[in-house]
């Protein structure tokens, strides 16, 4: 499995760390939405939207769409959306 970092190009899996499902963080104090965000998972067999960290490269956080059945990479973008 190789990921194409928007900053660095196609790189080996060793440079990246999986950082969890890409979910929207709830606002405010504890609520069931926090339990859903922290613990509950769709755990899809198929297209999965994930955060990866290019720690041994440019250290950008990435949003990766990946097929969990085949390890095919469907898309990679910066988690910041290009904001500085």
């Amino acid at each position: 499995m190789r990921l194409t970092c928007p900053n660095c190009g196609e790189r080996d899996l060793r440079e990246f760390t999986y950082r969890g499902a890409a979910l929207d963080r709830p606002e405010g104090a504890w609520s069931p939405a926090w339990d859903a965000y922290l613990h509950q998972r769709d755990n899809p067999a198929g297209a999965s939207r994930e955060h990866w960290w290019h720690g041994f490269g440019c250290s950008a956080f990435l949003v990766v769409e990946r097929d969990t059945r085949t390890h095919d990479i469907l898309s990679v973008s910066l988690a910041s959306g290009g904001r500085q």
Binding site: D12, L13, Y18, E50, R69, H71
Partner: peptide, 12 residues
């Protein structure tokens, strides 16, 4: 250390 249903892993 990444989710997978592929029943095979990677080289690292």
């Amino acid at each position: 250390f990444y989710p997978s249903y592929a029943q095979r892993g990677n080289l690292p």
